[in-house]
Design a protein around this nucleic acid. Structure first.
Length: 297
DNA sequence: AGACGTACCTGACCGC
DNA sequence: TGCGGTCAGGTACGTC
């Protein structure tokens, strides 16, 4: 099958980035093709032409966005939304590139109902962007204007960077009256967390998702920062979380869903140390929150 | 300004 | 088997 990935919070986007790196970074996009006019937003004018023939200088990630810096001075910005996935196939014969083995594309690859964008690179490889809910986006932005763009201006610190520490988070949360669960989902506070990993990090830090953000004291923010970093790192190491049909380059699914302590475990026994609690599901700001009332205060 | 609800779109799943 | 209702990992926008 090649490489495939879905479930895009930070660890899943990073897993996608790692799988795309060998077929994009330093490679030439020999062809780009869109199969409809828009995703969540329209493709920019002459999108395919502006990509074709360009070399990808670097493939990086900011929050849940993938950024492919091109030699034209533009950056291809990709967001996977809720259901976006990238499938990578070798051309001609199966190939090992970097740590990944890419198989040859089946004849129908790129022709599926929700296959919206197809790239060919000189790896040689075919990359297919599939997104059945179409909450994803792809656009082109001048590289030197990226930070000023509405998508990135005001965005918080990367949770795996040194800048994300107790002092930073305390400042970002101070005075906030919204629950800590909602605050951590706010990309202006910290960039890249989503519903699963916020639930998991709060459990690991022993903090109730209902506690108001501004009321979390510094002595509890420290373990929270540690928990966020650890859960993200562990998830990346596990190839992300698969709830449906995610697979890594090897063909194996992501693995981190087996390490969920609260997410999706409503009514099940708590796996924590004091562990007689039962995992509860509530709705906050329209999203499911899973937590253990006995362990999280 | 900040907090909240809602909309975007499709598919999977559950109960009847 | 079919149908309606509910839910889903994200983000942006309108409204108080």
């Amino acid at each position: 099958m090649g490489y495939q990935s879905v479930m895009p919070e930070l660890p899943e986007v990073e897993t996608v980035r790692l799988g795309l790196e060998p077929v994009l970074e330093g490679r030439v996009i020999t062809q780009a093709r869109t199969r409809r006019g828009d995703l969540r937003v329209p493709f920019p004018p002459h999108f395919a032409e502006r990509l074709t023939g360009r070399t990808v200088k670097a493939l990086t990630r900011r929050a849940k966005y993938l950024l492919a810096a091109l030699d034209s001075g533009e950056t291809l910005v990709i967001h996977l939304g809720m259901s976006g996935r990238m499938s990578v196939y070798s051309e001609g014969k199966p190939r090992k590139l970097g740590n990944y083995v890419y198989d040859v594309a089946p004849a129908s690859a790129g022709e599926g109902k929700h296959d919206h964008v197809v790239f060919e690179t000189d790896a040689p490889a075919r990359i297919i962007f599939n997104d059945h809910r179409r909450f994803g986006l792809m656009t082109l932005i001048a590289t030197d204007a990226l930070e000023k763009d509405k998508m990135f201006a005001g965005m918080g610190t990367e949770p795996l960077s040194e800048g994300f520490n107790a002092r930073y988070l305390a400042e970002a949360l101070s005075g906030k009256k919204t629950p800590i669960k909602s605050a951590l989902l706010d990309q202006r506070v910290v960039a890249g967390l989503g519903n699963i990993y916020v639930c998991e990090a709060l459990f690991r830090a022993g903090i109730s998702p209902k506690r108001l953000a501004g009321s979390v004291t510094l002595d509890r923010i420290k373990p929270l920062v540690t928990a966020i970093k650890k859960v993200l790192k562990d998830a990346i190491a596990a190839g992300g979380s698969t709830l449906r049909d995610h697979a890594q380059a090897t063909g194996d699914p992501g693995n981190f869903q087996h390490h969920f302590l609260v997410y999706g475990r409503e009514g099940k026994p708590c796996k924590g140390k004091n562990g007689r609690g039962t995992i509860k599901r509530i709705v906050q700001a329209g999203r499911s929150t899973f937590y253990c009332p006995a362990c999280q205060k």
